[in-house]
Structure formats: C-alpha cells, structure tokens
Nucleic acid binder design. Sequence first.
DNA 1: CCTACCGATCGGTAGG
DNA 2: CCTACCGATCGGTAGG
Lengths: 193, 193
Amino acid sequence: METLVKKNRKQQIEETATNLFRERGYAATSMRDLAQVLGIEAASLYSHIKSKEEILQKICFRMADEFFEAWKGVESENSSFAAKMKKAAIAHVTVITKDTAASAVFFNEWRHLSEPFLSEFLTMRNDYEGRFIQIIEEGINSGEFETVDTHFTMLTILSSLNWTHNWYKPQGSLTPDEVGTRLSELILNGLKK
Amino acid sequence: METLVKKNRKQQIEETATNLFRERGYAATSMRDLAQVLGIEAASLYSHIKSKEEILQKICFRMADEFFEAWKGVESENSSFAAKMKKAAIAHVTVITKDTAASAVFFNEWRHLSEPFLSEFLTMRNDYEGRFIQIIEEGINSGEFETVDTHFTMLTILSSLNWTHNWYKPQGSLTPDEVGTRLSELILNGLKK
DNA sequence: CCTACCGATCGGTAGG
DNA sequence: CCTACCGATCGGTAGG
C-alpha cells in the first residue's frame, strides 16, 4: 500500500516536471516551482526522488528506450526501402505523439545531463541516427533512392520528424499513423507534383 | 575614442554571451560565467549592458531582422514557385549559416524573453511562416505543387531548414548556397529516384 | 510530508 | 572596470 502510493506520487512528480521542463526549460524550473504545482513543499519532493537531475534522466532515457523499442517493427519490413522508411517514420512519430511534452524535454534539455549520462545519451542518439543512414544507403544501392549526401539527408529527415513534438495536438484530427504517412510521403516524393 | 572602445567591448560581450547561451542555454548561463570568459568581474558587464535579458533581446531581434531582410530577394523571383521556394530556402539558410551560434539562441532561447518582447517575437515568427505558406498555396493553385496540408508542409520545410544551425560548419566544404540548393531539392523532389 | 535550515549562487547596484 | 555588497533564490539535508 505504502509503495503503491509512493509510486503514483513519483509518477505525478515526473509528469508535472515534464510539463514544466517543456514550458520553461530544465534550468529555469526550480524545485519550488514543481512543488507548488503539486501543492507540497519543495523539501517533500526528496521523499520520492533523489535529485532534480534524476527526473531529467528518467525522461530522457525512457524516451530513448521507446524509440529503440518502436524500431523493432521496422526491421521486419522488406518489401522496399521506401516502405521501410515509411515504417520508420511512423514508428518514430508514434513515439513522439504519445507524449509530446516528454519528447520536447528529450530533444531540448538533454544537454543538462551530467556525465556519464550525457555520453551515454549521445552514443544512443548516434546509434539511432545510424539506423536511418542505413536505410538511406541501402535504398541508394538498390537504385530506389537518389541523394547527394546520406548524412545530410538523414539530418533533414529526422529534423522534420522530430519537429512534430512542437505542433502535434492529440485532440487534433490527425492520428500518429497519418502524421507519419504524410511526413514520409513528403520526404519520399517531395512537394512538386 | 571612448565610445569606440565601449562599442567593441559591447560586441565582444554579445558574441561571448551568444556562444555561452548556445552551449549551456540562457537560464544556465550566469553573468559570472560570461564575465569570467571575458576576464573581467561580473559587475563590470553592467557598464556596457543594461541586463542579461537585453543581450538575449539583441540576439533574437537581430536574427529576426536578418531573416526578413534576406527575404527581399525572394519576392522578385517570378519564374516558377519551385524556383521561388528554392530562393527562399537559400535566403533562409544563408542567414543561419552566417551565424549558427546566434541562430541556435534565436531558435531555442526566445521563450526566455519577457513581455512585450515575447509577443512581438511570436508575431514576427507568425508573419514569417505566413510567407512560406503563401508560396506553397500559390504553387498548389498554379498546379505546380501537390500537398494535403499547407500548414503541415510549411512546418516540415522550415524544420529541416532551421536544423542546419545544428550541423553546419563554416570550415566545412559546403557553401550556404549549396546547402540551400540541396535542401530545396530534397524538399521539392523527395528522396525517391 | 512538514518545519527549519544550509551554503552557494543568482542578477544587479552603489560608489568610486 | 573594480570592490563591496544587496535581497532573492537555488538544490538539497536534518530531523521529525
């Protein structure tokens, strides 16, 4: 019973912190700000968490795990590299749309992680980006894709996918699948008719 | 003579602050950090600037001005809307590549502006985004472009253009023109052969 | 989860 | 551009 209550309170702290970190940024959010929203004293937060940075770590690494987890469905796609890219876009965007606040923190506040978390984070990001590069390279080798610079193309694709955290509204009319589909169509076919 | 020295020192302060704001974020950069890099005491900064936020304001509104200024060459392009979009992409990217540090602050730290600067900033951004929407809509009406959602397309295009601030290296082999050209080609024609 | 604190640091000012 | 300082606030701890 005790542990259940604590667990819920901890989740509540992390969720509230996520929203504040998104709105004001990690550095500009104080533990007193966080406590006030929750209706408790700042000192009371430390019964549930170890430090301010621990919250950031939880957010960043949970999101990273989700991105990798979502990728599992992508590897099974073998019909074409366009289809694989579409599947990757949908997987990526689905993770973002499920929690745009946590995604915003993940994309914008990771630099406030201390070592060794920062290095671990950057290694994971590099690994993840490599997966997109691989699809692009395989698509070029098979004659399906055409691009001058695979790294440049990966950065361009990921930037447009990632930006969804900033405009996607769950109460809107678009489903995550539709967002991923539209993005992959724009990426694959371009704006020109 | 006095004013000349002061002017240079002020520019030096703004430049150093820009780099620190980019690396650590606005909120996580203290005036003592800034002073230390410049080799003076924190209190001495206030002989040249009014406040910490004044530096942020200067950076944000100078960048905004440059984006609008660069747009002037775009309006004269009338051969096609694809050509106009290409010109817009090059103009936009050229401003970013000229100062990636100031661009990073512009894109990531504007939320720390206080009123009425914040509102003014958002109004300008909205205006600027409207110009991209207009090209897209005109291109659709002329039968040149094809897209489901102009606002969605504008956000996707701008996100990939803006992301250049994060990877462009002036000492690299790509000129701003080449970056803009490649980005517009990917945007207009897509990745598929 | 609270009261009562801690040392450190913040942006900024006074006065030279 | 400096010394000397201000009140406010920071993340976090002790002890209940």
